[in-house]
Amino acid sequence: MTPSSIQLDADGRLRHFLTVEGLKRRHLVEILDRAEALSGVAERRMTKSPTLHGKTVVNLFFENSTRTRTTFELAAKRLSADVLNVNISTSSTHKGETLLDTIRNIEAMQVDMFVVRHAVSGAAEFIARHVAPHIAVLNAGDGRHAHPTQAMLDMMTIRRHKGEFANLRVAIVGDVLHSRVARSDIHALNILGTGEVRVVAPKTLLPADVGTLGVHVFHDLEHGLRGVDVVIMLRLQRERMSGALLPSASEYFQQYGLTAERLALAQPDAIVMHPGPINRGVEMDSAVVDGPRSVILEQVTHGIAVRMAVMAIVLGNRHPDITEET
């Protein structure tokens, strides 16, 4: 079984979107191209697309995340789908209902797609294995494992600024160990043929054998930034700033915080990304966040186009009557 087989149909097309790992370059390029085509709608320069009219998308969030949920909601609405937001952390599971019971109940409401966010790695894949066959599952982040739409919006941002991936050097800086964004970005960058992918962090924030994911490992930020075209900063959770992983937020900023001086070690046209929300003065200096090389707000905008694209592709593969957008 190939890693991604459950998310592909018999013709090798996406029927769920659970992880970037195991996908082919053509899958990623299709998403990026579709997102570009939809960006007019996504960015409100064109009216709503009727693509998913009559379809119902359920945002099934077992972990709070207003901003991710909002972009999925906007994406679905701009494709004319009906949207239902279900915040499970405050409802059923506290009453003892099992995850599968919750799924069964919601799937009985005649819906077409689940957008799932869950704190446990593998949860989206678990749900995809057990959900009724007519329902598509999009992974909106599962534990430390994957956040594939975030990776695709990152790729869209990089492609818009840099074009081809083959000659790029990309540095991913920070808490790779706990980051689903990092894992998905690493897979996406490698599938798209990126010249070099680096991770930069102290050993406490890197998984064992991280090199086997296809990255070069740096523990020194200044070495890691030298000559890179793209810098992806990762969020550091507040509870991890001081303890056995790191001594303090201030030492972290001194060693791994992105400042204008350090950014000068990268290529002159290097871009700076961050999945948000940012801890100013911990991961990055405000001057960099708000500086000319920062493309962080573009990432947010691209997030809507990418999520529209993934929804349209996945439901389009299941319902041939769903056509390419207007």
């Binding site: 430390r144 998984p207 064992a208």
Partner: peptide
């Protein structure tokens, strides 16, 4: 911990 602290845990995002 959920799995051996090695390449599979790194890939699946499991605690090692």
């Amino acid at each position: 911990g959920q799995a051996h602290d090695g390449q599979v845990a790194a890939r699946l995002g499991l605690a090692g």
